[in-house]
Design a protein around this nucleic acid. Structure first.
Length: 493
RNA sequence: GACAAGGUGGCUGAAUGGUUAAAGCGUUGGUCUGCAACACCAAUUUUUAUGAGUUCGACUCUCAUCCUUGUCUCCA
């Protein structure tokens, strides 16, 4: 008996606009695709939030016993630039600016991306394919779309014929747009003369002479359009129809809309059963934007080296902060919010650390099985981690009550409580058990300085029992006092 | 401008028709302590942007207004 047979998940499907019971195509197996980063610069903090949410979803599905194939791509071929640059590739532009090889840029930022995710305790995806590694698949896909009459070739470039597609299909199902509205609202840009209609999008672009990243194809030496890679890689590894496709809200249109159109045009069926979109991350009530300076890197957040926050925050504190809100809501990153989360996080960790010290009793004053099911119900309801956390705090309260003798649990219930707390906190939410001393180095040194001062006073009063006590107690905790000519310093080991 | 999402206590943030609107932080009181800090216990605030409407009953549905955000062009 697998857990998923008992715990039934509801997922909010962007396609239908409502919560639906989750039923995988193949019982016990889940195929999940999430649009990954473009590795031409440091990973965006908002990007991290999206992946963090899907990491939690991945973890929960695995926890329920599903065999999950989680595919998250690396976009290393870059996207088409603004048409003013005549289809120049973002990665190429940056590379030329820095006078280095494009793949060197890709390599550097891919490593950076992985480092950040490791710091945040992400589980690696099952497959992490790159766009440049799947050019052949993308070319094959284009051929099919052309054969089926939904794309046309102009001057070595291939465009998807949105108007033709919309005659027999519905372009706009996901974003709830109508082609009519798009026609009236699409800006006219220069350099689009090759397209039959402004709504059409590129499947293959002929490379300009200065364009470094290029591959041969039946149409020209060039590079694939940016919507194509996800369709090629998702269907290659998960099949023409798979369970879950995730990404940031801002990818809904046009990116995901185009993915649906490409799959439909090439394979004649809709690619995805459940579309999930994570919402945006704001900074102090405003969208993050490099141009206004309202932005902070993951790295700067972790080191405290920034202008927005009063201190450095541990990765788990940031994960906890994220899990305290729904993945579907806009989350506002503020110093007050992080400080509050940090306190709550440590409170929860303290309770968990107390668990192993608790003594079992003859009776239980708390219904652990019911509580456990409440935890599952929270996650089953479209991965409602804030509610789960509320339940975890309820358990933390019980733990403290037991410790002070105002509540009790049988050995069996105690074991269940411990197991469930650990599973949800560490396996599902992906938090790491740290204590305050691990993070607040400044606070620690401040406290020790105070002790040193008190000890000095005790010594001045010839209260050696006190001064020795302070010295010995600190030593027992791994803090060594060093008396010198110029005063007392301390070291930790 | 068009389309979409949203505006809940001092702060963060759940709950989409039905008893006292989660939880965390904060604040106040208590326990602990020589005193404090930490920790724990308890209490505490909102009537759900604004104004109408539907309903026996609305945060939850409808309309209007104000505001925020996303997308429409590369974007998590």
């Amino acid at each position: 008996m697998h857990l998923y047979e008992k715990q039934k998940i509801q997922i909010y499907n962007t396609l239908s606009g409502k919560k639906e019971g989750f039923k995988p195509i193949e019982e016990g197996y889940v195929g999940m695709y999430v649009c990954g980063p473009t590795v031409y610069s440091n990973v965006h903090l908002g990007n991290v939030r999206t992946f963090m949410s899907f990491d939690m979803i991945f973890r929960y599905l695995k926890h329920l016993g599903y065999k999950v194939r989680y595919v998250r791509n690396i976009t290393d071929a870059g996207h088409l630039e603004n048409d003013a640059d005549v289809g120049e590739d973002k990665i190429t532009k940056k590379a030329r600016l820095e006078q280095i090889e494009p793949m060197e840029v890709v390599q550097r930022y891919t490593v950076d991306f992985h480092n950040i995710l490791n710091t945040f305790n992400f589980l690696p995806p099952s497959i992490e394919p790159t766009a440049t590694g799947h050019i052949i698949e993308q070319i094959e896909l284009i051929k099919k779309i052309i054969d089926n009459g939904f794309a046309y070739v102009v001057n070595g470039s291939v465009y998807f014929d949105v108007h033709k597609f919309d005659e027999s299909n519905d372009y706009g199902v996901l974003s709830k747009r109508k082609l009519e509205d798009l026609i009236h609202n699409t800006r006219q840009l220069d350099g689009q003369s090759d397209k039959k209609n402004p709504q059409d999008f590129a499947l293959w672009k002929r490379a300009e002479p200065q364009h470094i990243m290029r591959w041969p194809s039946p149409w020209s030496d060039g590079f694939p359009g940016w919507h194509l890679e996800c369709t090629a890689m998702s269907t290659k590894y998960l099949g023409d129809n798979f369970d879950i496709h995730g990404g940031g809200m801002d990818l809904k249109f046009p990116h995901h809309e185009c993915e649906i159109a490409q799959s439909q045009a090439a394979k004649g069926q809709t690619p995805v059963n459940y579309w999930m979109h994570a919402n945006m991350l704001h900074l102090n009530g405003q969208r993050m934007s490099k141009s206004t300076g309202n932005t902070v890197n993951p790295d700067e957040l972790l080191t405290g080296n920034n202008d927005f926050f009063s201190k450095a925050y541990a990765p788990s504190v940031i994960r906890f902060f994220n899990a305290q809100s729904s993945y579907k809501s806009v989350l506002d990153l503020t110093d007050d919010g992080l400080l509050a989360s940090e306190k709550g996080f440590f409170r929860l960790m303290d309770a968990i650390n107390l668990l192993s010290d608790l003594k079992a009793d003859k009776v239980s004053t708390f219904n652990v099985s019911e509580w456990q099911q409440n935890c599952y119900d929270a996650m089953n309801d479209d991965f409602n981690s804030p509610i789960l956390i509320a339940h975890l705090f309820e358990a933390a309260k019980q733990v403290n009550q037991i410790k002070s003798g105002n509540a009790s649990l049988t050995a069996e219930d105690l074991e269940l409580l411990k197991k469930t707390m650990h599973e949800f906190t560490f396996d599902v939410l992906g938090l790491v058990n740290i204590t305050k001393a691990d993070t607040g180095t400044d606070k620690l040194s401040g406290a020790v300085e105070l002790l040193i001062q008190l000890r000095q006073e005790a010594r001045a009063n010839k209260d050696f029992a006190m001064s020795d006590k302070i010295r010995d107690e600190l030593a027992a905790k791994g803090i060594q006092l060093n008396d010198g000519k110029d005063g007392t310093t301390f070291t930790t080991n």
